[in-house]
Deep mutational scan, measured.
Amino acid sequence: MQRVNMIMAESPGLITICLLGYLLSAECTVFLDHENANKILNRPKRYNSGKLEEFVQGNLERECMEEKCSFEEAREVFENTERTTEFWKQYVDGDQCESNPCLNGGSCKDDINSYECWCPFGFEGKNCELDVTCNIKNGRCEQFCKNSADNKVVCSCTEGYRLAENQKSCEPAVPFPCGRVSVSQTSKLTRAETVFPDVDYVNSTEAETILDNITQSTQSFNDFTRVVGGEDAKPGQFPWQVVLNGKVDAFCGGSIVNEKWIVTAAHCVETGVKITVVAGEHNIEETEHTEQKRNVIRIIPHHNYNAAINKYNHDIALLELDEPLVLNSYVTPICIADKEYTNIFLKFGSGYVSGWGRVFHKGRSALVLQYLRVPLVDRATCLRSTKFTIYNNMFCAGFHEGGRDSCQGDSGGPHVTEVEGTSFLTGIISWGEECAMKGKYGIYTKVSRYVNWIKEKTKLT
């Protein structure tokens, strides 16, 4: 034993070699072989497995989906700052455009905790909710729209109204504003409101030439003092309507412009014939205590009207009353817009006519005020429907199939267009061939041609 100890002390290297040989010859039971080890760690190889990531292109799944990435790591994937920024906006807080917040056709661009709407022409605001041009839906104005110097929408209202708090709607500024039905039992019968379409306001006024200088022999019209197929109006439903009495009662109609003036057809009036105007009328054979009678003290036909040349060209006249009318729910003026808007309103496509005229061709006159909704007829169809001249200051309205029309005794009465609950004068009943005849239409004086003249002559002093 002493000898062994001496050998170990003198030859430590020998001992180490012996131990190493023993270990190498022993069977290893701690580690699995290569094949079995792979069965336990069965993990798919990654895209760049075996390579240094710093030297390969980034992978979106590896960089940002398996674990949260930084902007720089995302930049490695896209290799483009702009594309990385677009991805980053949604990656950080989701897609803010998912709810489609942009209105009126706006395009949404996502941002971090926010979004941006790219608005089409005519709109602005956070969600493109603000109209900035009158060309689109009248700028959301209830009545009139004008573009300011910086191309912003400025709404306005006709006389007797003021802008509401929203700067879009119009509200009454006087007790009985024009064009409004205020009798409670008839307010439910107000005709369907007309909503502004998209309009090209630059070209809204037709490029028409008034044929002022045409000389033409007097034409022989049949029954051209021209509501057939209409309905009984309720008291106060058309408070701007008046009836004219002269040699015979209810020979023509008219509309209240203001307390002192009536507008009617020029062919209705004769110099030297006494005319009485009755406002607030409903049943011409009954006294309903809503009527107001006034005498006409002055007749002003349009300066281009000449019955000797043509009885229905420039067929418009103004009547001055001896005493002002007292405005109330049964006696209310009709609204008159400017030339541009009167023309736009007419193009809405349908209007209402009213009167006490004959209820059928050569038949009896109506006792109760009649009204009828009539569609506008395109000019080409209008011209083809008659052998008589249709001037540019006239328009056609009615039904091709016949059966409904204005008729004798309705002449001078109103053709009105309702705009968001307020009625505007767009025409004056003038003439036609018979009444409600198939293929024939009622012919009306186009008020847009005469609004400046009306307003100039009827100013209240």
Rank of each mutant, 00 (worst) to 15 (best):
V228Q: 15
M437L: 15
I300L: 10
T186F: 12
I316K: 01
S385P: 04
L19K: 02
K39Q: 11
G50I: 04
K440E: 12
D410H: 15
H282A: 08
L19A: 10
T209P: 14
S217M: 13
N393E: 07
P239I: 01
G179M: 00
M394F: 08
W240L: 00
F121P: 13
T381V: 13
F388E: 11
C145H: 02
V228I: 14
S255R: 00
C382F: 03
L32V: 14
R404D: 15
L23S: 03
G94H: 12
E54T: 00
C178I: 01
K126H: 12
A397G: 07
F55Y: 09
G13N: 14
G94D: 13
T186M: 14
G229N: 08
L32Q: 15
F123R: 08
F224A: 11
I428R: 01
I7S: 08
R162M: 10
V181E: 07
S148W: 08
S148T: 14
D249H: 10
C396P: 01
G105W: 05
R162S: 12
S169Q: 07
W453F: 05
K362Y: 06
N151V: 09
R404H: 15
V419N: 05
K146C: 06
T422C: 05
I429K: 15
R46Y: 02
G403H: 15
F395N: 01
Q241H: 15
L52P: 01
K168I: 12
D410K: 15
Y312Q: 06
A266L: 02
D200L: 10
S448M: 03
G421S: 06
V377F: 03
F123E: 04
G355W: 15
H361F: 08
D378S: 10
L325N: 00
I334S: 01
A26L: 07
V77M: 04
L163S: 03
T342I: 03
F123A: 05
F399I: 12
A26K: 02
L346F: 05
D200Q: 09
N222F: 10
F399K: 05
L41P: 03
Y161C: 00
G442S: 11
R46V: 01
K137A: 08
W118L: 13
N258S: 06
S204K: 12
W240A: 01
V326E: 10
T290Q: 10
Q185S: 13
T386L: 08
H282P: 06
E420F: 11
I390F: 11
G272W: 06
V227E: 15
L372Y: 13
G402Y: 11
Q216L: 12
E434L: 12
V269S: 04
F360G: 12
V77L: 10
A37T: 10
T85K: 06
V248I: 15
I390T: 09
A436G: 13
Y305F: 07
K274H: 12
A192C: 05
G398K: 06
V56T: 14
